[in-house]
């Protein structure tokens, strides 16, 4: 097993030593905004040589480290788990760390801008506070009554499966900031908050389901969803967001969950 790995490794090293034959020239058109310089946001083009198998985040790093240090964006783990680097790439909300350059046609300029519906603070950094306020409002924690068990709270595999999809959320805001209802006035709870409510409403161990449903029964709750499916398309974790919202609606009407 180790031998082929070694071979591959040296082959890759050879390719690297051969030079930059595999690199392509890509133009990144980035939406820049700096309130200390100008009130208006504007597009700025950056050209760089990059391996098309690299990710958009790598390109942003290259720009920030080698071309323009003032470029501002969030990233933390850089591996699609922390949910920091959701941005609008070629008009679609994606995680920069999960988007390969070869998958988004590097022959044309690649546009990168901040996610919509939240206040831009600088370049690609937005104020996430309204997003997290909606998240806090649905009480995303286990609510139980009675004495705490001395052992763990047991749950059958079927009961766990019921809400498995919505446990995958990483709170990157790609869904909420792709929702046209959220763009309107920002009062809608947004897909992410509803997904995280769904995760507890359908958890057999949780007893706060009624409370959460009442919160989402609000004027700005689930009933503002127009099933545009933008959220499902945007989710980098592949959560069926619109389906989860519809399940919450059904639970509100049938009171079975």
């Amino acid at each position: 097993m180790s031998t082929p790995t070694l071979d591959k490794h040296s082959a890759a090293l050879d390719a690297a030593e051969d030079g930059a034959a595999h690199l392509v020239t890509v133009t990144f058109r980035i939406r820049r905004f700096n309130p200390e310089v100008s009130e208006d946001a504007s597009w700025e083009d950056f050209q760089l040589e990059i391996d098309p198998k690299e990710r958009v985040l790598d390109a942003l790093h290259k720009i920030k480290w080698e071309q323009d240090g003032t470029l501002t964006f969030r990233r933390s783990c850089a591996h699609g788990i922390c949910g920091s680097d959701a941005m609008r790439i070629n008009g679609r909300n994606r995680l920069a760390c999960k988007t390969l350059i070869k998958d988004i046609n590097p022959e044309k300029p690649i546009t990168v801008e901040a996610i919509k519906g939240l206040t831009v603070m600088k370049d690609l950094v937005v104020d996430m506070e309204p997003f997290f306020q909606a998240y806090r409002d649905v009480m995303p924690f286990l609510i139980t009554t009675g004495n705490e068990p001395t052992r763990e709270r047991r749950q059958s595999a079927e009961d766990r499966e019921r809400f498995d999809d919505t446990t995958k959320c990483i709170l990157c805001a790609a869904c909420t900031s792709s929702c046209p209802v959220f763009w309107n006035d920002g009062q809608y709870f947004g897909p992410a908050a509803i997904v995280n409510a769904h995760r507890f409403i359908f958890d057999s161990r949780d007893e706060g389901g009624e409370q959460r449903l009442e919160i989402l029964n609000d004027k700005d709750g689930v009933w503002r969803c127009r099933t545009t499916f933008n959220c499902t398309d945007a989710c980098p974790r592949g959560i069926e967001v619109t389906k989860a919202i519809q399940e919450v609606k059904r639970a509100l009407i049938t009171r079975r969950f």
Binding site: R136, M139, I215, N217, K219, W223, L252, I253
Partner: peptide, 22 residues
């Protein structure tokens, strides 16, 4: 989390938005 006020809606089923949706 957001406080429970009179406007939050009671535990009774439904409100206008829900009925409109149905």
């Amino acid at each position: 989390p957001r406080k429970r006020t009179k406007k939050t809606g009671s535990a009774s089923r439904g409100n206008f938005e829900m009925q409109a949706w149905l």
